[in-house]
Design a protein around this nucleic acid. Structure first.
Lengths: 305, 305
DNA sequence: TTGTAAGCGTTATCAT
DNA sequence: ATGATAACGCTTACAA
């Protein structure tokens, strides 16, 4: 039992393939008699016709596919899988609303299947947590004119848009909530070294007062023991819960989009996933409108407290 | 600047399109002189050729795409987004290893975009947390011979394979860990009513001693207050953390694949995501081998304690 | 208002 | 060992 094609409908309705296509696609420039329109539509329904998007994509040179490409971390933290789940789910929802389908792919150093964007003729792609190296490799396989957005990554290439939490603002707000200057910063790590550097830089703290999570158990508490009773900032709600056991005067900056798991007595700063809307719409515009240009390279997600 | 095609390579190498295709696909039945093989391969590389999977799919009638379709819950619990993230990530990893790409889609009552499986000519699909109704609707759009697996759902149709945690075994193990009979069961809800019923049935507890999470704050503690100091079983590590605040004699059955967030002093039972391997391989076999049949309809994921 | 036909980039059969 | 060509299912310029 094979799938119904336009051809089948045409045969059944005694009209040409073209006519069927016009009707199914509601082509405005083409006038169709009500009679045939109704007839064809009915038959299409009877035969349970569904568009063959593969064939369609080939012809119109648009797939309606967006890639969400997640780069896994070397040192897998316990929360690493959860970290981007909400972001991805939200993005899928938003793209879906605009009629796109989402191809989801994880890339690690073992499986560097970089060609997906071109192989699958993706209309656009979101790369999450990429380091410069991997980005260079994969960017060899970008299509020309395919919008590519990077999230949580500093890529030294002005061709691409970057989506980042507004770190500076977050630190400002944190300071406000603490009422005094934080004495330490505990943060999660990222594949993208430049992003880590940017964060540490913005914190205005010397390296000795910054702890970048490194997977090894125990190292955090050793670090913290240097700052008894001191106020601090903690990026990542999982780390915050941990730190809170010994240091209650902290602000949690919820970089995991997962503030529900945060102890509810911890001061916190969150980001709103609805802010992705703007990004998704931008990608859509790039796809729809070949000549669209947006020179805003940084999308800073505003923190809420 | 357009993408390189086989045609471009052919022209550049002064050979036919067919020859290029043979070489790129390493067709065994076709002998090719070393000279042209080397020449073509070199040119392909120079021109940065990548397969156009859209065209290829159309021709060979296989897309190499697997759909992972997640049905969202009506009453969104705080952990609902996180709940299936790990499952999906693991599945993507496994499918990826076999050369498939994964189309990820969430379906809720608002966006019942059911046709994706046929539209996109998916080679296979995993449906997660489906209720009978939605399943009926979507199954109208299944392709014939496309393997469809349902997870965490009881679907009354012997054509489809079902993947479920081994509830019975989990309850047995729990009882062993408790050392006595549990007096209550706290469980998360599922879209699939039949699955909920199955679980409650297997618990051997009367309805009055079972709490199915319903989103409303406070109702859990009211329920629990009926069973002071009693042993109980809690499905879902988030709920378990909650229950533990008042009832320490419990076993957590980690249905969220997320035991990391569980307080480490709680007795627990987990499931191993590596057990998905078998399912992924089965899907692969169905795709590769048209005649393959597997009559094992239930895949019960074994609990570990 | 409808139909014809070329072409999107592949694969695979059949000649040469 | 290589090439010509039909076909996959669709869209669209053009003809009728």
């Amino acid at each position: 039992m094979k799938k119904t094609t336009i051809k089948d409908i045409a045969k059944e309705a005694n009209v040409s393939i073209a006519t069927v296509s016009y009707i199914l696609n509601n082509v405005k420039t083409q006038s169709i008699s009500d009679e045939t329109r109704v007839k064809v539509l009915k038959i299409a329904q009877q035969l349970k016709y569904v568009t063959n998007r593969t064939a369609q994509s080939l012809k119109i040179n648009k797939t309606g596919l967006i890639g969400i490409i997640l780069f896994k971390e070397e040192n897998q933290h316990v929360w690493s899988d959860l970290k981007y789940a909400k972001a991805i789910f939200k993005l899928e929802q938003l793209f879906s609303k605009l009629g796109y389908h989402v191809l989801f792919m994880q890339i690690d150093s073992m499986t560097p299947s970089n060609k997906i964007i071109m192989e699958r003729n993706l209309d656009g792609a979101i790369l999450i947590n990429v380091d410069q190296d991997k980005f260079s490799t994969i960017s060899n396989y970008f299509g020309f004119g395919v919008p590519v957005i990077v999230m949580d990554s500093y890529i030294d290439n002005s061709l691409f848009h970057k989506v980042l939490p507004d770190i500076e603002q977050s630190f400002n707000l944190s300071q406000g909530l603490l009422g005094e200057s934080p004495q330490f910063l505990v943060m999660d790590s990222y594949n993208n070294v430049e992003f880590v550097e940017f964060i540490t830089h913005k914190s205005n703290l010397p390296e000795s007062q910054i702890y970048v999570s490194d997977h090894t158990a125990g190292s955090l508490s050793i670090f913290l023991s240097q700052f008894p009773n001191s106020p601090g900032m903690v990026m990542n709600e999982f780390l915050a819960n941990e730190v809170y056991k010994t240091h209650t005067n902290i602000v949690a900056i919820c970089t995991c989009n997962c503030s529900e798991i945060l102890r509810d007595d911890i001061n916190n700063i969150r980001f709103d996933l609805n802010d992705y809307k703007e990004i998704v719409h931008m990608v859509d515009r790039y796809i729809q409108d070949v000549d669209y240009v947006n020179n805003e390279k940084f999308f800073l997600l505003p923190p809420h407290s």
